[in-house]
Design a protein around this nucleic acid. Structure first.
Ligand SMILES: [Mn+2]
Ligand SMILES: [Mn+2]
Ligand SMILES: [Mn+2]
Ligand SMILES: [Mn+2]
Lengths: 161, 161
DNA sequence: CATAATTGTTAGCCAAGGCTAAACTATTTG
DNA sequence: CAAATAGTTTAGCCTTGGCTAACAATTATG
């Protein structure tokens, strides 16, 4: 299993992390930093997006539904809702269902739009719907606007042809 | 996936999270679960991959280099190395540089191969190299094997034409 | 070769995101 | 309408992944 053999014959197209020298330190740091930053907002975005979806499709967002859809305990959801509250993304009265603030709605919208682009892109690429949904749920938080608009272009090309 | 949807004029290509009913609970849970699982191994993979790269390009992997490339304190790296040790991925003697175990090398290889495919794919798609590197660093951990092999196919098509 | 600089480790702190168990509130139903 | 059920919150625990400060070891240098 050495790494300078022919084990990856097809990836010849250009620069690669394995074949190349390491990136300059500054850029390398920025890569990891960007990922760390994304991870700080990921879960929040997923919650807000889900709350928006529940309101839209079910009329209301209740903590129990969030818990069962996320596959997580109600206690976990309750704690998270307090955080979302402190962040000014939702409003909630005790034992009542949730509402998104203006800011929360904005975030839900942006997140859902991005999520949809990634999902549609994967499907346009030829990925099976089930897999595409799973991959999109994680990928969506790590896709730059530049990549997003290229994905959108790709979707448009694939679908109107 | 459900149908009966006439909203969303531009996203016509198929099912969308926003226009559609919510996914069945079981599948929805699996999406989030997959992301949570990925997040458990992400950092580990990045460390191991970086250690492999440092050994390959610099001859050795020292904690200080890891810290400066990851943009993180030496204490953080030291703590993480203990974990990698416990996981059987690296061997290390105090104040000495690091080595990957068999298992660590395997993980480094797999991670790097996957990372390369994602990076090459983004570049083949038309994403600027700098952006592609940043996006790939996060996306790589959320891409299924199915999607990976479709990406590889895409790369091949783009480059030999 | 003694000291300075660099590198690595340890201790102790913090926030996030999980969990279970127990208490509390609201809703449904006999 | 009282009791049972369902939903929500709180308390307290755990792990991960950051940090700073203090200390220890190694390596470089005058
Ligand atoms: Mn997501
Ligand atoms: Mn992620
Ligand atoms: Mn990587
Ligand atoms: Mn990565």
């Amino acid at each position: 299993m050495s790494n300078r053999d022919q084990s990856l014959p097809h990836t010849v197209s250009g620069t690669s992390n394995s074949g190349d020298a390491l990136p300059p330190i500054g850029e390398h740091v920025r890569q990891y930093e960007t990922v760390r930053n994304a991870h700080e907002t990921e879960l929040i975005e997923d919650y807000v997006e889900l709350i928006g979806d529940l309101i839209q499709h079910r009329g209301e967002a209740r903590a129990a539904d969030i818990a069962s859809r996320m596959g997580v305990s109600q206690a976990t959801v309750s704690k998270m809702i307090r955080r979302l509250n402190e962040l000014g993304l939702v409003t909630s009265k005790p034992y009542r269902s949730l509402f998104l603030t203006e800011e929360g709605q904005k975030m839900a919208e942006v997140s859902r739009a991005r999520h949809d682009i990634v999902l549609h892109f994967l499907r346009a690429l030829g990925v099976n719907d089930h897999t595409a949904r799973i991959d999109a749920e994680g990928m969506e938080h790590h896709v730059s606007n530049e990549t997003l608009s290229i994905m959108q272009r790709f979707i448009d090309q694939q679908t109107q042809r």
